[in-house]
Design a protein around this nucleic acid. Structure first.
Length: 265
DNA sequence: ACATTGACCTGAGAGC
DNA sequence: TGCTCTCAGGTCAATG
């Protein structure tokens, strides 16, 4: 699930629920979601502290803990957050549970355990070490920066968009959606992208990511002109009704409409 | 430099 | 019902 828009919605959710509450305790249900710190260390760092604010970069959510540290959450393919009071509401694959003094709890749920939780002192340094590119929705990430990020890559546009080192936040679902709106075939080469095409791609990227956040990434809220509600539904192009094509790029399933998306650029 | 593949993990859903 | 097979929105390392 969690690409940039999903994580942006998680951030809104966290900000509206779990900030400024005293942390009573932490329980780690699955150790292999822990990245750089032990369960003991994590518990020690969180106990008695509060979450003060959060920020997002790409698919990462960083939560400032009173004291020195930030909690860096990555959600893998299946992660999400849930804030609840009644144990009945606990999600089914809780890997980390944070209890607050108001008796509410925040669950980090990650069915496939591909997500990671890290304690970091310096967010910028963490981003540098992970070699993450600029966040796709950063206001400073403008067209020239976008062109520079794609660079003279020999890669396909789809894999370039998904490459977190080039720009951070876009995964399989949204790269398909962006390419659909830009009318570009996923196997188009990044190299030699026409000025006009690059601009169209850039504008589609911003538009799609913002729209997804506005819809709170609920498929039912997406305009039916978007690919997302169709790729797991009728698998037909929302513009022409033609069956969507399906192919593998970088090991990921990619959907596109062969009528509206072409390699010419 | 890029593409591809498998590993990491678990579970939902399809088909029989 | 129960079994097997395939697939899943991410990332990393090894290989071609």
């Amino acid at each position: 699930m969690p690409e940039l828009p999903d994580v942006a919605v998680f951030k809104q959710y966290l900000d509206a629920t779990a900030l400024h509450r005293r942390i009573k305790g932490t329980s780690i249900k699955s150790r292999n979601i822990l990245g750089n710190s032990s369960a003991q260390k994590l518990q020690r760092r969180l106990k008695g502290q509060k979450f003060q604010r959060s920020r997002r970069h790409g698919k990462y959510l960083f939560i400032k803990v009173s004291g020195e540290k930030w909690l860096a959450l990555h959600f893998g393919m299946t992660g999400f957050l849930k804030y609840f009071k009644d144990a009945k509401e606990a999600p089914g694959h809780t890997r980390l549970l944070i209890e607050f003094s108001n008796d509410y709890q925040l669950a980090y749920d990650c069915q496939r355990k591909l997500g990671r939780v890290n304690l970091v002192r310096d967010v910028e340094k963490f981003i540098r070490e992970k070699e993450l590119g600029p966040d796709a929705l950063d206001p400073n990430f403008d067209l020239p920066a976008f062109r520079q990020a794609l660079g003279a890559a020999q890669a396909t546009v789809k894999s370039a968009l998904m490459n977190q080192k080039r720009l951070a936040g876009i995964g399989n679902i949204y790269s398909d959606e962006i390419l659909f709106h830009a009318g570009l075939h996923p196997q188009s080469k990044t190299h030699g992208l026409h000025e006009k095409t690059a601009k169209r791609l850039f504008q589609s990227m911003k538009k799609v990511l913002r729209a997804a956040i506005r819809c709170r990434v609920e498929p039912d809220r997406f305009p039916s002109s978007y690919l997302l509600p169709h790729r797991n539904g009728d698998r037909c192009c929302p513009r022409c009704g033609q069956k969507l094509r399906r192919t593998k790029i970088g090991g990921r399933t990619s959907y596109y409409c062969s009528k509206h998306q072409n390699r010419r650029h």
